[in-house]
């Protein structure tokens, strides 16, 4: 009989979300390969809550997941470097980063924890505000912002903003009711939560993005070890197909973001290399510093990531 595997993620299923698409591609490709493996996809957190997925994979109760790695940073603090401001500038840079020493270190930690990477994927994001465009660090001063993750919060606080932590699903109401002046999240969320109805300016990812997040397709090592070589090859091949699809789709996602906001009459701006460098300077004094001090091997990780041209 076929081996039946479970794949889970938190995004809507069958509605064109890129991460759902990646998992579906892997399902199609692996089943097409005819190696006796079928994949059952559980989209929209219908099996596990987003942050439970890591533990479930480590324990072998979940086989495959599209998982934002930072969600496991409470267990492996090094993972917060995959949601660190300014380390990844654009999609081509992200592609080069995948083969760097930095990612080799991260993948070793993933592997040691009992999880295998099937496909790499980096999602871009930006800022939006209803007060003023966020380009220079000074622009953020005095604004109440929602940031994605502690590293961004630390950097924004260092730039003089105040932080209101909330899930991305609450950004819309936050802006509407004045609890927030602006927010920082992924391109996908900016579009799907229709935040363009509430803001006056969008800072698109463009060539000098501050916000990138690593959201790979992962597999439980317990499951991996149960597969024979043919099945492993089928998974890796499928993973490559998904990764290639993703690379184009992610750029398309950013284009969709720009189109949606321009279409809604929102001003769209992008950071220059100098503005990006100012933010990185602030990050070095806040989030990077913090990360280097608190996380074993943190300093080296940042250095290795910054070394990637």
């Amino acid at each position: 009989a076929d081996i039946k595997l479970k794949a889970s993620h938190q995004w809507p299923g069958g509605k064109g979300d890129v991460r759902d698409e990646m998992v579906q591609i892997i399902k199609r490709e692996v089943e097409k390969a005819g190696v006796g493996v079928t994949l059952q996809v559980y989209p929209g957190k219908s099996l596990f809550k987003p942050k439970q997925q890591w533990d479930a994979m480590v324990k072998g109760q979940l086989d495959v997941s599209a998982f934002p790695l930072d969600y496991a940073s409470g267990k492996h603090p090094q993972f917060s470097s995959t949601l660190m401001p300014g380390l990844v500038k654009n999609h081509d840079h992200a592609k080069r980063l995948n083969d760097s020493d930095f990612m080799a270190d991260i993948k070793k930690i993933i592997d040691d924890a009992g999880v295998v990477v099937i496909s790499d994927a980096w999602l871009a994001g930006g800022f939006a505000s209803k007060k003023e465009c966020i380009l220079d660090p000074e622009d953020a001063r005095g604004q109440v912002l929602r940031a994605a993750g502690p590293a961004f919060e630390q950097m924004l606080v260092a730039a003089g903003a105040s932080i209101n932590a909330m899930p991305s699903s609450e950004i819309y109401t936050g802006l509407q009711t004045g609890v927030l002046d602006g927010a920082n999240t992924s391109s996908g969320s900016f579009v799907s939560y229709r935040i363009y109805e509430q803001v006056s300016c969008l800072t698109e990812p463009g060539a000098n993005a501050l916000w990138f997040m690593y959201e790979p397709i992962l597999m439980s090592k317990k499951t991996w070890n149960k597969l024979d070589d043919k099945q492993k090859d089928a998974f890796m091949a499928a993973g490559q197909v998904a990764e290639d699809y993703f690379f184009d789709a992610a750029k398309g996602l950013d284009q969709k973001l720009v189109d949606a906001y321009k279409g809604a009459g929102v001003e769209v701006v992008g950071m220059s290399a100098e503005q990006h460098a100012k933010w990185v300077a602030i990050a070095k004094e806040s989030s990077y510093k913090n990360f280097a001090e608190k996380v074993p091997g943190g300093k080296e990780l940042i250095e290795k990531a910054l070394a990637v041209e």
Partner: peptide
């Protein structure tokens, strides 16, 4: 044993 923490700025031990 794993010294797990919350994934926030506060990062309380779990």
């Amino acid at each position: 044993v794993g010294n797990w923490h919350g994934e926030t700025v506060w990062a309380p031990p779990l």
